[in-house]
Simulated scan of single mutants.
Amino acid sequence: MKSYRGNIGSVGWSSCSRQASWRRLQTIAIAILLLLPIGASPVLAAPNSASAASTSHVYLLRGVLNIFSLGLDDIAAQLRAQGIPVTVANFASWSSLADEAAAGFKSGRIKTIILVGHSSGATALPDMVARLDQLGAPVKLAIGLDSVFRTKLSGRVGRYVNFYIANGNGEPVAKTAQFQGKLENINVQNVPGVGHMSIEKNQIMQQKVISEIDAVVFGRSAPASGPQKPRQPRAAGAARPGRADTAAVRQ
C-alpha cells in the first residue's frame, strides 16, 4: 500500500509541475504580446491596394469627335477591372470635369487625380492641369496622346508625360516659368503600328498608359517609357523644318 501511495504522489507532483510550467509559459506569452506595438501585424501594416484604387480617379478626354478616341474605352475598362474609378468624356467637358475633380479632392473622396487625353483631349490637358491647381487640387499624373497643337504647361502636376508622333502631326509640350513638376516629351514614332488615329488603340501604348497609372495608384514600378530606337537611320533632310530630329525630348 505504501508503494502504491508513493506512485500517486509521484504522478500528482509531475502533473502539478506541468501545470506550473504551462502557467509560466502563458504569463511569458501574454507579457510578450503586451510589449508588441499596436499595428505590428504584417497584415495590418501592408498597403491597402483596394483603398488606394477607390480613392483615385482617372479622367480620360476624347478628341473632337467621340468616335475617334474609342481606344480610351479599352483603357477605361482595364482600369475599372482593377477597381479604379474612371470618367470618359469629350475634351470640351474639361472645365466642368476639373470642378468635379476639385470638389471630390476637397471632400476627401478623391486623393489621387490622374488625367489622360487623346488628340484634342491631349491639347486640353494643360488647361485642366492649370484649372485644378487654381482650385487647390493638384494633378498627380497627366498623360497626353499626340496633341496636334503646341501647348504650354503651368500649374502643379506630379508628372506630365506627353507621348507624341514626331513624324506625324504630334507636338511636344513646353513648360512655363509657373510650372511645378516633371515634364517628359516622348517621341513614339517607332512604336509598331502607331499613328495619330490609332495611338490610343495601340496595345503597346495602352500598356504604357496603364503601367504609368498603376505605378502612381499602387506604387508599382513603371517600365521605361522611352521610345524604341529607330530601326533604320533617317534620310538626310527628312525631319520637318523647325523640329529637332531626336528619338525623344525629356525635360
Rank of each mutant, 00 (worst) to 15 (best):
L72P: 03
A236E: 13
A177I: 11
V64M: 07
L132E: 06
K152A: 13
S56E: 02
I38T: 08
T151Y: 06
A53S: 11
V161L: 12
V173R: 05
R231L: 14
L97G: 09
A122N: 07
S17L: 09
S154W: 06
T123R: 10
A236G: 09
R220V: 05
S93Y: 11
P126M: 11
R250V: 15
A29R: 11
L145F: 05
K152W: 12
P192D: 08
A101Q: 02
G195E: 05
D146N: 02
L35F: 08
P42I: 04
R156G: 04
M1A: 13
V173A: 14
D73R: 04
G170R: 11
I28G: 00
G121L: 04
V249P: 00
V43K: 00
P223V: 02
R150F: 12
L141Y: 13
S96G: 08
S54T: 07
D99Y: 13
A92I: 15
N66L: 07
N66S: 12
Q228W: 14
F179W: 11
R23K: 09
K175H: 13
T151K: 12
G71N: 02
A236V: 14
R156P: 06
K106G: 08
S119D: 05
D127K: 00
V188P: 03
C16K: 09
R24D: 10
N167D: 15
Q206V: 10
A50S: 15
V188W: 01
L72Q: 04
Q189A: 14
A52Y: 01
Q78K: 15
W94C: 02
G121W: 01
A103F: 00
I143H: 01
L125M: 08
G136Y: 05
R23C: 09
T123E: 15
S3Q: 07
F179N: 08
P223A: 03
G63Y: 00
D133S: 15
S41P: 03
R24G: 04
S96A: 12
T151H: 09
I75H: 03
A244Y: 04
R231M: 12
A222S: 15
K2G: 11
N202R: 08
P192V: 10
I38N: 02
S198R: 15
P37N: 01
I28Q: 07
G219I: 04
A222M: 05
A76V: 01
W22K: 02
R5Q: 12
A238K: 06
I32W: 04
L35R: 00
N185Y: 01
E171W: 04
A142M: 03
R24Y: 10
I8F: 14
G170L: 07
N190W: 14
S15Y: 14
R5I: 07
L141A: 06
L61A: 04
E100H: 09
Y160A: 00
N202S: 08
S54D: 10
F91V: 08
G144D: 03
T55V: 14
